[in-house]
Amino acid sequence: MPDEIGTLFHQASTPTMSVDPYAVLAGGRRRRQRRRLVAVAGTAAATLVLGVGAWTALSDSTGDEQTLPAATPSASVSLPEAVAEVSLGVIPQTDRTQPLVAAVAVDEDSGRLGFALRTEDGAALASRSVFVGRTERARFATLVPGVTAAVLPAGVTAAVPVWARGQTPQGSAATAMPDGRVLVVWWTDGSEKDTFYDVIWTEGDEVLSSHAASLLAIDRDDARFFLAPNGGVIGYLAPPGEDEVVGGGKANIIDQGVVESFPAVWADSPSGSGGTYAVFLPKVEDVELVVTGDAEIRDQTVHDFGEEVGLVVLADVDGSRESVTEVRFTDPEMGPTGGPAAAE
């Protein structure tokens, strides 16, 4: 067996991965410089310098010898020139009482982009660069918990943020960048730590997501579910026909489970008790959603998107958010099965 495992490892077809040696070199230099600064500065000042250092990562190009600016601990730091800035207003969780400004820089070569947050008078609050090399059409990053920014393609007409557990943005701001792309920043009240999951946006009639997949939209009475045909499901709800959705909407990915070789995922609506559930399945028969307690399925419809997408079951459930615990179905090839509970 050990030999077999070794063979599997060495025969494995790995995804394309790489690191840019010069980007590593630049990062190493910044790290070394930060260590020196931390050694001579007080903790608070050093923290500020870290922010400046991270921001510098964005403005550095890769592949060339770089000279880092001599960052000096300061209570007021001027950020390097940004590609775009947007005024955010007062963001509660940052414990600030004056409006903040988000600035963004993009390093196309390294795949990093960065966002900085500062007060209107120039005092830096935070900055961060994030590697998002796999996201081709859109890039997004969480700057500080609850403050997330995205750079979206030119031509975007509307955009919505999606947090994994359904956090709702409290506000948003957007501006066009010089190259036509759009910078959007969303913020929440910071009361819930959540994973920023996705950005969904529209370009003309097309609905897209930062997962590089065009989305299918299913309109229901009060909701629109966006489903990625690459096997993923992103449950998102917005009033049908609403054109201006920047900063609106909410999504809850309740649970997910892998049943055999395919995903079974459901998402619910944000409409308080009960809600609309979407379950993504392959071609199956006899789908049954299992609910708990007194919950009741008021309505259930099935959408068949063909082989590429599979089957989507939508159900209106009267009960609590967690009232759907399982989906049972019959696979023509595998026979009766279920998930995700049955997969565990």
Partner: peptide, 27 residues
């Protein structure tokens, strides 16, 4: 992990572009 994290991938994937059956099974 309990802190807010960034993700640019769907948590579920039917078949990633690079995957072959054995790699998928191994990972």
């Amino acid at each position: 992990r309990s802190r807010e994290v960034l993700t640019d991938r769907t948590p579920e994937r039917a078949a990633a572009e690079h995957d072959v059956e054995d790699t998928d099974a191994l990972v």
